[in-house]
Simulated scan of single mutants.
Amino acid sequence: MGKTVEQVFENQMLISIHDRVGYGSKHDGSMIDLDICCDCFDKLIDGFTEKCAINPIKENY
Rank of each mutant, 00 (worst) to 15 (best):
M1I: 01
G2M: 07
K3S: 09
K3P: 03
T4M: 04
T4A: 08
V5D: 02
V5K: 12
E6I: 15
E6T: 14
E6S: 15
E6Y: 13
E6V: 14
Q7G: 03
F9T: 07
F9D: 06
E10S: 02
E10V: 08
N11E: 09
Q12N: 04
Q12T: 07
L14F: 13
L14C: 04
I15Q: 03
I15N: 03
S16V: 09
S16Q: 09
H18Q: 11
H18Y: 09
D19S: 13
D19N: 04
R20N: 08
R20L: 02
R20I: 06
V21H: 06
V21R: 08
G22Y: 11
G24F: 06
S25Y: 05
S25W: 04
S25N: 07
K26A: 10
H27E: 08
H27V: 04
D28G: 01
D28C: 01
D28A: 05
G29M: 14
G29A: 12
S30Q: 13
S30N: 11
S30E: 10
M31N: 10
M31Q: 04
I32D: 05
D33G: 03
D33N: 13
D33L: 00
L34R: 05
D35W: 12
D35Y: 12
D35K: 13
D35G: 09
I36M: 13
C37E: 10
C37Y: 05
C37F: 06
D39A: 14
D39R: 15
C40I: 13
C40W: 11
C40D: 13
F41A: 14
D42C: 05
D42N: 09
K43L: 10
K43R: 14
I45M: 01
D46S: 15
D46C: 11
D46R: 12
D46N: 11
D46W: 06
G47D: 14
G47L: 10
F48T: 11
T49I: 07
E50D: 13
E50A: 15
E50F: 04
K51G: 08
K51S: 10
C52V: 11
C52A: 15
A53T: 12
A53P: 04
I54V: 15
I54R: 10
I54H: 09
I54K: 09
N55K: 00
N55H: 00
P56A: 03
P56C: 06
I57W: 00
I57G: 01
I57T: 06
I57N: 00
K58V: 04
N60P: 03
Y61E: 01
Y61R: 05
Y61K: 02
